[in-house]
Design a binder for these strands. Structure first.
Ligand code: FES
Ligand code: FES
Lengths: 149, 149
DNA sequence: TTATTTTAAGACTTCAATATCTTAAAGATG
DNA sequence: CATCTTTAAGATATTGAAGTCTTAAAATAA
């Protein structure tokens, strides 16, 4: 089950990477992120641009430029990234693809699905990008490195 | 959040429709299903074909032909449809798109996601197509008709 | 200033899911 | 038989997400 689009996935991984690698008051090079995480540079740039526009990141052009997290990472929740990148209706979709889940007459799967959705929504509300960083898991395709406990 | 593909969605809706409309020992016309549910006839035909190949449906060609549910609908679970139409790895996907969820070193979101996945998996294991039929919800785009309680 | 580096922005391409179209095969009907 | 209906099967088309390419703008550095 592909819950999130590549766009959101790349954003999450990039932000965790930035938390792991940032020095104080220093911009991080997008090229480095894309290289280390094996993500298309231009695609990642566009994703991060939208986060910059939303005020989560700040960017700086030129030779020593890059991007930096400009918001308290404890206040950057997964659900915030989802709403920005997937849209505010992310949790309003009917399991059977019918219009008006929660507002029109429910479909037969509504009871099951709405509970599961609320559950997941809550998890995404309670997980900040800092939380994920502290959980210290794998964010690259490589399975070599073990978690540093 | 689009959990299921259109393929699976159409299959579920068609099966519920069939339970609602079937007479004993009678084949149901795919054209009727596609008309009433507003689903592309050829697309739906192909989906139902794969269910026929898997033994869930039986089909009959020619003038009075159509399809019929050939398996006890109480034993057709949502998870069975998912495995057939989405693949057996449906619940093995990493939230961050990384390979080897559950087998390789977990990603930072694994704890959250694996629990949510297991939860949903259980719900899909416990819901048969007959259960959904009995829940009597909307399976078309139209919001006119109310559930017949 | 001129050249280099880096993000910004938009056009373009690719790919898989979705949808449509065409023909074949099987059965019914007269 | 000839004709019609319906599912089967495969080719083709459309669409949106994902990915690539090109140029612009901003900043550094020689
Ligand atoms: S109406 Fe279908 S899941 Fe809510
Ligand atoms: S490894 Fe990422 S969710 Fe399991």
């Amino acid at each position: 089950m592909q819950a999130l689009s590549k766009t959101t996935i790349y954003a999450i991984r990039a932000l965790i990477y930035m938390l792991n690698n940032q020095q104080t008051n220093q911009y991080i090079n997008i090229r480095d992120i894309s290289n280390d995480l094996d993500i298309s540079f231009h695609f990642l740039t566009k994703i991060l641009q939208s986060l910059t526009k939303q005020g989560l990141l700040s960017s700086y052009r030129g030779a020593t430029g890059g991007i930096a997290i400009s918001k308290n990472p404890q206040n950057i929740r997964l659900i915030d990234l989802i709403y920005i990148l997937e849209g505010n209706d992310f949790f309003d979709k009917c399991l059977l693809g019918l219009p008006g889940c929660g507002t029109l007459e429910p479909c037969p799967a509504h009871e099951i699905w709405s509970v599961a959705k609320d559950d997941l929504k809550m998890k995404f509300e309670n997980a900040s990008i800092l939380d994920l960083k502290n959980l210290k898991g794998r964010i690259t395709n490589e399975s070599l490195e073990l978690a540093t406990a």
